[in-house]
């Protein structure tokens, strides 16, 4: 029981076939489910450290699985989804999924996302958050880049903090807007574009080719 458990939910046996050896090699214990019902059962019974979830399941919708797990647990969930279903990914993320990987995917990518999700789950609020040469002192409201302080407005700081708190993971537009501006402004993605633009001007080495705050087209932003 010392090994962390990963629950893999997919109705395609072929996916299990290559994920199991990889996850095992990474040092996880693998539990497999083919249906939503089994997934819920195992999520409750096996206490997984993270869940890899395919959205297309034979018995019910993968999004419903997220919803029902989120009621009882904050376990990191990485969603497997088709490339052409932006709306579905956004829905899944808004329902509480931590990240997504588009099918078809390389296992390296999935593993990275999975690790980021689990790392975040361990991280706690407060202290100093660091990514590359940028650091955020949450308590002091101070942002430094390469050791020099960078002046940010209150909103810019809030946006940056929201991204730092979810570092490595995609944060949807809706999530950011709700967190920074409140739920009344969920549709106003133009605010975000303006503030993210300003943050890049102040924090990126080359604002035209961002390396810190990445855009996930149609979905949101990711801080790496």
């Amino acid at each position: 029981m010392s090994l962390p458990t990963i629950l893999v939910v997919d109705d395609e046996i072929a996916i299990h076939r290559f994920l199991r050896p990889v996850l095992t090699a990474e040092g996880y214990r693998v539990v497999q489910a083919m249906t939503g019902t089994d997934a819920l059962k195992l999520a409750a019974g096996e206490d997984p450290a993270a869940i890899v979830l395919d959205l297309g399941l034979p018995d019910f919708d993968g999004k419903e699985v997220i919803q029902r797990i989120r009621k009882v647990s904050q376990v990191p969930i990485v969603v497997l989804s088709a490339r052409d279903r932006e709306a579905e990914k956004v829905r899944a993320l808004d329902l509480g999924a931590d990240d997504y990987v588009e099918k078809p995917f390389g296992v390296g990518e999935l593993m990275a996302r999975l690790r980021a999700a689990m790392r975040h789950a361990k991280a706690t609020g407060g202290g100093v958050l660091v990514s590359g040469d940028v650091s955020v002192d949450v308590a002091a409201h101070v942002v430094r880049k390469g050791g020099r302080e960078v002046r940010l407005t209150r909103r810019e700081f809030d946006v940056l903090l929201a991204l730092f708190r979810n570092a490595g993971r995609v944060v949807t537009h809706t999530h950011l807007l709700r967190e920074v501006w409140g739920s009344a402004n969920e549709g106003n993605t133009q605010y975000l574009r303006v503030y993210v633009g300003q943050l890049r001007q102040k924090l990126e080495d080359d604002p035209a080719a961002p390396r810190l705050i990445l855009t996930e087209p149609g979905i949101g932003y990711r801080l790496v």
Binding site: E12, A14, I15, R17, F18, V22, R83, K103, P104, V107
Partner: peptide, 17 residues
């Protein structure tokens, strides 16, 4: 996409692991 995902996944698993 499903068989492709499986092929890509297996291939990357073999390469990386």
């Amino acid at each position: 996409r499903t068989p492709l995902a499986s092929i890509l996944g297996s291939a990357t698993a073999l390469i990386d692991y």
